[in-house]
């Protein structure tokens, strides 16, 4: 090792190696049986090619997820065939289906129990934002209110091809991460998301502001006009009049 005072020493101590490998050279070398790579690439290649999803489904999207894992669509081609029954052994949580308010605390708890690095795909309209049940009293308007989501996968339900696409998007994301900057190697990492509690009218809190915040503008309102009014007083059907009408063979209303 050269002395610190010498010119070479200064360069070695302060200049990080940022030179990219020439792709042509890399290809030429590989023909001779020499592999040139970076630790980053190797690390991400290993992780993205063996994603172990957690084996759980919440509704009909889970059926599509099962189809994706089966022979016809064969998720194993992407290295994600090993569905683990324990969160302790999985890297990826596919939230496949409607997350009811009663189920939400358990989903958050499962996510907390997964070891780092961990990822989350929300599969289908319900898991993203509540889907057709968005105005219901019982369905959570998107699991991204409580946990961070890496890939949102729209559809009702998304086809297996869409799930494969989502998985590939996640692989892209994994491959873009840098080992020196990844959150799970940093000191003082706080990645435990508090589990919501049952309150008298819904979950407490309604969302975790560190993860999700309501939009300033309601896109739904803009697109569809006034949102569906909840508790709207409708006219109850008059069953007796309808019975009489049917008995007399009168015209339909």
């Amino acid at each position: 090792m050269a002395k610190k005072e010498s010119r070479l020493g200064v360069i070695l101590a302060h200049a990080p190696n940022v030179s990219a490998i020439d792709e042509g050279l890399k290809s030429e070398l590989s023909k001779k049986g020499v592999v040139v790579t970076t630790l980053n690439h190797l690390y991400n290649w290993g992780r993205s090619s063996s994603i172990w999803p957690m084996q759980f489904g919440l509704a009909c999207c889970a059926i599509e997820m099962i189809a994706t894992a089966c022979a016809r669509y064969d998720m194993a081609r992407f290295g994600a065939e090993l569905f683990r029954a324990s969160p302790r052994q999985s890297d990826l949580m596919i939230v496949a289906g409607t997350v009811t308010k009663k189920m939400a605390p358990q989903v958050v708890r499962l996510y907390n129990q997964m070891p780092e690095p961990k990822y989350c795909i929300t599969m289908g309209a319900c898991a993203i934002a509540g889907g057709p049940f968005i105005d219901g009293y019982n369905v959570l308007r998107g699991i991204d209110r409580y946990i961070p989501v890496d890939v949102h996968l729209p559809g009702c339900p998304p086809r297996p091809e869409a799930l494969l696409h989502g998985l590939m998007q996640l692989q892209k994301k994994i491959e873009s991460q840098e080992i020196e900057k990844t959150a799970w190697y940093q000191k003082g990492l706080k990645r435990e998301y508090p589990v919501p509690e049952f309150g008298p009218r819904g979950l407490i809190p309604k969302f975790n502001p560190e993860v999700w915040q309501p939009r300033a503008k309601d896109n739904r309102k803009e697109r569809y006009g006034e949102p569906i009014l909840i508790g709207k007083k409708i006219k109850a059907p008059d069953l007796d009049a309808e019975t009489l009408r049917r008995a007399s063979g009168g015209p339909a209303k």
Binding site: K102, Y137, I204, K206, P214
Partner: peptide, 28 residues
């Protein structure tokens, strides 16, 4: 049966008013 024990109100009645889930309240 489906809702938790400390849930208040009867959600399928026509006059049930549910919470606005985009606005935080003091208990949150």
């Amino acid at each position: 049966l489906f809702m938790w024990d400390n849930f208040e109100g009867w959600p399928l009645r026509k006059d049930y008013v549910q919470e606005d889930s985009d606005v935080l309240e003091s208990q949150d």
